[in-house]
């Protein structure tokens, strides 16, 4: 039971941390301001959905040095996204936006690797863990996008700050509680 509980709150926290990391990086590089053309939204969200699923599932692989590899993949993904966007003067077509939004979800991979390593899971459970993380990630991004639109695009940095504080508080609680749940 305790392990099941850990399974759910660690998957929940992993998705929150991934949202924070993805949004903070996108905000710091001004990539987030590319959003605005309603015709591009299907491509944007398709990239996020597929990216979240694939990167998350990749994080469930049992490979030697997977944490280091996943960090490397995440960094390379970001660099490719940056190159695609800035080599086109931040004007990117639908296909390019799909690829960029796919790549920008890459922090979900090392996050998944790190948190599922805290649990002793069978392979099927690792996949379930990844699917839960990606589903929550997509849901949170979708809700945040709706709130951002309703607010006339004024709450972006406040939203990222909220996720930052939430993520740090939970990580501190996990740190203090880790003795209990180990």
């Amino acid at each position: 039971m305790e392990n099941k509980l850990r399974f759910f709150y660690l998957s929940g926290y992993s998705s929150i941390f991934s949202v924070f990391a993805s949004l903070a990086l996108a905000y710091s590089l001004n990539l987030i301001y590319l959003i605005g053309d309603e015709r591009q939204e299907p491509f944007l969200f398709l990239g996020i959905i597929i990216g979240a699923l694939i990167y998350s599932l990749m994080g469930s692989l049992k490979v030697k040095n997977i944490l280091f590899i996943s960090l490397l993949i995440s960094i390379i993904s970001y660099l490719i996204a940056l190159y695609l966007i800035f080599s086109n003067d931040m004007v990117i077509d639908n296909n390019m936006l799909f690829i960029a939004s796919f790549l920008i979800t890459s922090p979900i991979m090392p996050s998944n690797v790190f948190f599922n390593s805290r649990l002793s899971l069978k392979y099927s459970s690792r996949i379930l863990f990844s699917l839960i993380i990606s589903a929550l990630f997509i849901l949170i991004i979708l809700i945040f996008a709706i709130i951002y639109t309703i607010s006339n695009q004024t709450v972006l940095p406040y939203g990222i700050l909220f996720f930052a504080i939430l993520s740090i508080i939970i990580s501190i609680i996990l740190f203090w509680k880790s003795g209990d749940v180990k």
Binding site: Y27, S28, P157, I168, S171, L174, G179
Partner: peptide, 24 residues
Amino acid sequence: LQQWFLILLLILNLLILAYWGVKH
């Protein structure tokens, strides 16, 4: 709300997680 501050928080968060990982 500045970009550098939010990246700083991200680094802080990563350090907490890294410490947590190493410690436990």
